[in-house]
Amino acid sequence: MSLLDIRNLSIDIATAQGKVRVIDKVSLTIVDGSIHGLVGESGSGKSLIAKAILGLHNASWTVTADRMFLGTTDLTKLSSKNRRRIMRKEIAMIFQHPRSYLDPSKKILPQIREVLPTISIKRRLLNIIKRSPEPSPRLRIKELLHKVGIQNDRIVLASYPYELSEGICQKVMIAMAIANNPSLIIADEPTTAMEPVTQEQIFRLLYKLNQLNNTTILLLSNNFGSIRDLSDYITLIYCGQTVESGSYKQIINSPMHPYTEAMIKTILDFDENISHKSQLYTLPGNIPSANQLPIGCRLGPRCPRAQRTCVINPEPLNLKGHMISCHFPSTDKN
């Protein structure tokens, strides 16, 4: 049962050089209750996709998609008011550099209190009838913070964002995200600015949320290594095009796309013996800039297997849930 079904999402941005297609026919299918990793280098367009899902994009972007369904609701056809309601109840997002995403002029307590779900009048009446009062907001907030692993909630709640570390800020953001019990959490590189210990804490928290509440998590990352143990499904993106998509086992054991292979090769495995000052593996070349995107398969100029046919966009192939768009997939490890 797919929670989020996106087919052929394309985003055109109007620049000084004309319309640039930054996201080119990306397809993403997120299974309910799974952790889905969306991997791509910086600038591959992962954040754009997330923003497009939430509807946070600028007015100057043109977003087109064959399908963009959240459960059974078509996201493209919603009015802004309904969109907002969806955003609060179904999808939540957490960001990179969490401290800048908290209002610097307010303490944490009012900010969390803002996003707490409001108790409907019906429920209030029911509570009065049943004589079971709703826990006070303060108590609910305390619960939330405990859930995300913040023990000294009083100090945290009375602080301003600039007084807290990034790790705690991220936990607060996650607390705000789960306050409404969303079905999908989009985590946009949540741990990029943190030290490894805190990273581990955050990932463990996300994992716990996924296991306990069955929350689907879409984890955007530029680091293949950090998410590979966490994700059930992985989608790779290069330059706004989906490159390969599939379950974790499929990707790791039988990568078919040259980009995936390169990514896997770049994971540092400290068990191996790496000689002193040896060159680490990368694909040759750089990510093309937005106004010089290659035609067809955008990996073309860097791909070790590139041929002339690569100037045409490859059709996505679906092999038992393992999607790949390449003219020359490596089929040997199938």
């Binding site: 946070l56 907002r84 609060r88 939540a92 960001f95 209002d103 803002e114």
Partner: peptide, 24 residues
């Protein structure tokens, strides 16, 4: 960024203005 986060949290525009934008 925090305004984007507020949008993402689904706050309405008026609430946004009064509570977050003005004070900052």
């Amino acid at each position: 960024n925090y305004i984007k986060a507020a949008y993402a949290n689904g706050l309405s525009k008026t609430r946004l203005v009064l509570h977050h934008v003005l004070k900052n």
